[in-house]
Amino acid sequence: MILLTGATGTVGRLVAERLSPTEPVRLLTRNPVRAAPPAGRQVEVVGGDFGDFGSLVRVLTGVRSALLVTADPLTHAHDEHFVRAARTAGVRHVVKLSALAVTDPGATDLITRWQRGNEDLLRSSGMAWTLLRPRAFMSNTLGWARSIREEGVVRALDGTSANAVVDPRDIADVAALALTDPERHGGRAYPLTGPAPIAAAEQTAVLAEVLQRPLSFCELTESQVRERLGARYPGRVVDALMESAARQRSGAKSRVDPTVRELLGRQSGDYRAWATDHAGLFAT
């Protein structure tokens, strides 16, 4: 049995689609009633919460490999509870979704420190582990969908600073490999990027071509971005995101890594292919 956390999120949902036709899969969610599991041979949706150690032990019992996706950089408790529960339940292998920033000595923001701490926790757990370290997801640009549909405008910071963004489908493919073959992938950390760095203004141009409509790019100021982020996140997280943006501006996120190609035997997906496949989400 393989357990997936974040099963309704970007990566977890895709991993579930890949594994469910052939593997017994258990999907962990806080609200099982709202989860729509993929069709598969053996798919089980279970309720549990990272804050409830007992519920984690229960859902991890009988599991051999698990995908761990956590999202709150203001606490290590979620990873601590999960790792301790997995060890208690006899889980042999945990695949952790981390971030490539952990390998950058210049990345000292709150979110990166949180991810480093979570990686250390897993490495010292006594279980086999695999670390997935992606750059930013191509799907993050879905945050532009409303302004594209309604105004034909993309608004973002640092329109010319590039990031080697990765297709979440590639992350899911690597995660599925790791979960089903822990002997090969245990003890490995995988940097995951797209095939080329791309900036927000370039992504806007690609979307305009794919959607066959004119789009304009509007450069936001740092104060405007802080105000927008502040409506969604606590101040400490906003500070971390702004620090991360500054590192991107310096070129720290533009390096392309060959790991996706080496693991999957094909080139990693580029932004144009991702945008083409998801054009309907941006269309009017």
Rank of each mutant, 00 (worst) to 15 (best):
L157G: 04
L157C: 06
T160Y: 10
N163V: 14
D167F: 06
P168F: 04
R169I: 04
I171L: 11
D173S: 15
V174L: 11
A176I: 01
L177M: 10
A178S: 11
T180M: 11
T180W: 08
R184G: 12
G187D: 04
G187C: 09
L192Q: 01
T193S: 13
P195I: 04
P195M: 10
A196R: 15
A196N: 09
P197F: 01
A200T: 03
A200E: 07
A201R: 15
T204Y: 02
T204Q: 07
A205D: 10
A205W: 00
V206I: 14
L207S: 02
E209S: 12
Q212P: 00
R213C: 10
P214A: 00
P214W: 02
L215A: 05
F217Y: 14
F217C: 01
L220E: 06
T221F: 10
V225I: 14
G230I: 05
Y233C: 01
Y233R: 13
R236Q: 15
R236Y: 03
E243W: 02
A245L: 10
A246M: 11
Q248I: 12
R249N: 07
R249S: 13
A252Y: 02
K253R: 14
R255N: 04
V256A: 02
V256Q: 00
P258N: 07
P258W: 05
V260R: 08
E262W: 10
L263D: 00
L263W: 08
L264Y: 03
L264T: 03
L264G: 04
S268R: 10
D270I: 04
D270A: 06
R272N: 05
A273T: 13
T276S: 15
A279C: 06
A279K: 08
G280R: 13
L281C: 09
L281N: 09
L281M: 14
F282Y: 15
